[in-house]
Design a protein around this nucleic acid. Structure first.
Lengths: 143, 143
DNA sequence: CTTACTGCAAATATTTTGCATTTGG
DNA sequence: CCAAATGCAAAATATTTGCAGTAAG
């Protein structure tokens, strides 16, 4: 295992980009948070260091996505959330009732993926999928 | 078949709400457009009548959703899009490459729905699902 | 040194809200 | 008439951008 940050250094240097403390902080924050909106990343970063501007967070996340370090998904009406690309691929289950976000293994979508491919020629991006509905707890309270 | 607009009248009257020209125009616009953002609905309405305020469009769409006349889905990063609830239920396939929106029968998700129910106790809202990926045309151009 | 990067403030875009006026029933 | 609905303008959010100063390599 390479020490943390090594991957970031390499990917940035390859393209003639620079390793800044802000970029390292953002990447660490994402790893710690799991899923997070740009705003949440900003708050998390500021709890460690003095302060990183929100614009920089946005620009950094966009860059990281281009570099393949993070991915984003749209969970409902709010902001997009970002998560480390290193973490296992998963589906997002967003509860309309309580807003909780659960994760499901992408294997549960295998059948769907196959059907969309053959019937529509469409190649779904399962990691990016957000599925809304009602979680176990909220299903009960409705019925 | 009842004449168009009858359904709207009934549902509004039932709740002591009023039938206004704006509400009729919005419903007609949604029917004509298929899928549309609030902004697009506004433009479509204004192409027929003189003008309906955007705030009114938002308030009207929210009301219609409560009444079960329309539904909305989040297709990618942009605004939510609304469509008639009367039209057949479907999944939205959004191409990351060209932005095209295709529709798939909800039957293709039957397996996924069952798995999420049994494994997570989660009841997905298939109509609301937006699936991103690459359409047939864009898949080719990438490879 | 060179130029990529950051912070800041202003510009955009999107959706919501308060309130005076209009209007459906 | 009277409560509901609309228009308008302002507020709240979310995201992007121009630019001058800072700092990585």
């Amino acid at each position: 295992m390479s020490p943390p940050g090594t991957d970031l250094r390499e990917r940035l240097h390859q393209r003639g980009l620079r390793v800044t403390p802000q970029r390292q902080l953002v990447l660490e924050a994402i790893d710690r948070l799991g899923h997070a909106t740009p705003d949440a990343v900003c708050a998390e970063v500021q709890s460690v260091a003095s302060g990183v501007n929100l614009s920089t967070i946005y620009r950094t996340l966009e860059l990281f996505e281009k570099l393949g370090l993070v991915r984003h998904a749209h969970l409902g009406s709010g902001s997009a959330t970002y998560h480390s690309a290193a973490s296992a691929a998963h589906l997002h289950l967003v509860c309309d009732g309580c807003g909780a976000v659960d994760e499901a293994d992408i294997a549960v979508a295998q059948d769907l993926v196959g059907r969309l491919r053959s019937a529509h020629g469409f190649t779904p991006d399962v990691e990016h999928m957000a599925i809304s509905g009602l979680c176990a707890a909220c299903s009960k309270s409705v019925s």
